Amino acid sequence: MRMGTLSLDDFKDVRIPVPWGHISGRWYGNQKERPILAIHGWLDNLGTFDRLIPLLPDHVGVLCIDLPGHGRSSHLQPGVHYSVDDYVYIIPRVMREYGWPKVSLLGHSMGAILMFVYAALAPHTVDLVISLDILISESRQPDGNNLRLSARNMEKHLGEDERLLEGISCEPPAYTLDTLCRALNKGTFQSVRYEVAHHMLHRQVTRSQLYPSKYYFSRDGRIKFLNHAYLDVGLFAEMARRIATNPYLIIKGSESPFLGPSEAFSILSTNNPNFEFYEVQGTHHVHLNEPEKCAQYIVPFLHRHRPPTPRNGSSLEPKEHSKSKL
């Protein structure tokens, strides 16, 4: 059977109901098989996978979602705080919505952290993990600097809450798309290249009503100040031990400082026979800037651990296409 690659034009927009609204997403490709669940990083959205999707094999679909407060997903209600720990619950929520007994996971940055935590909590439900540029965040020591940062973030989060509760509805400052692309490049310390920044912007900006040629950020401002857990290095190590045989692929950008505690990485790489690690030249967003460097490892990994079945591939019926514009 001839295998092709996914098309970025072949998708279905999805809205997954949740108690606070909905989770927005796009399901690319095969919709008759359980897809890969893809989750973006902090302050990003599902557009982060735009350039990687077309390089993946088409025998398995990919469901990319926007986390709450990001992209086009609902914001949490005023008075409710964003937390990395709470984001982990999004994975089993999506699984229950579609009735999946198992899940295949693809994540970047914070999305990859959520997948490490979930895989450690429920390894029997995870059939593979593809982690882009991180395993788990470094343990945050409760020293003075970290505590001051947490205190400052708490105050800023509460300030954003107060503005929401007061019903302040004035439009945020608006800018041209070119200016926003440059701002995204600068804000990520050049991790996201200017020429590909529009892939992230198309889901996190809204056209200004006051200045129709300009746009403003529409993501929830409170996600900039989300809560980070103070987890112990020993706990990370025990979590790594629980991911004993789950196929686990990590691709790291050479110019990125992220990976995680060395002990957890060592345990996973030593104990798990299905663990793979590769370093490629690039930044934290290498999967967006130069997706071919990641795809060269992801594609064979998928063929090994999610091979095509007789029910999918060329036997699929034609799918409906839907397209959205900015």
Rank of each mutant, 00 (worst) to 15 (best):
H284W: 01
T283L: 00
V299N: 01
T283Y: 05
P318V: 14
F301K: 05
V280E: 03
F301W: 02
K293Q: 15
R311F: 09
S315H: 07
A295E: 11
H285F: 10
K319V: 11
K323E: 13
R306E: 00
L316R: 07
P291K: 11
R311Y: 09
K323H: 15
P291T: 06
I298F: 03
R306A: 03
H287L: 13
H303D: 02
A295R: 11
R311T: 14
H305A: 08
N289I: 07
K323I: 08
E292D: 10
P307C: 04
E279H: 05
L316E: 06
Y297Q: 06
Y278H: 15
S315P: 00
Q296G: 05
E292W: 03
R304V: 02
V286N: 06
V280G: 01
I298G: 00
C294I: 12
G282P: 03
G313H: 09
G313N: 07
G282E: 10
H321W: 11
E279Q: 15
S322Y: 08
N312I: 06
N289Y: 11
H284I: 00
P307D: 02
S324H: 12
T309M: 08
P310W: 07
R306H: 10
L316A: 00
L316Y: 00
E279M: 11
Y278E: 13
P310T: 01
H287A: 04
N312C: 14
K319C: 12
S324F: 03
R306D: 02
V299G: 04
H305K: 02
C294H: 07
G282W: 01
S315V: 09
R311M: 08
H305P: 02
Q281P: 01
S314D: 10
K323G: 13
R306G: 00
Q296P: 01
Y278K: 10
Q296W: 04
K293T: 12
V286G: 03
N289L: 10
Y297A: 06
R306V: 12
P307G: 07
H321E: 12
S315K: 10
R304Q: 13
P308F: 00
G282Y: 01
L316C: 03
H284S: 05
F301V: 11
P308L: 07
T309S: 13
T309W: 03
H305Y: 15
S315W: 05
L288C: 06
K293C: 10
H305G: 02
H285P: 09
F301I: 10
S314V: 14
Y278I: 03
V286C: 07
S315R: 09
H285E: 01
T283V: 01
H284P: 05
K293G: 03
I298Q: 05
C294N: 15
C294D: 15
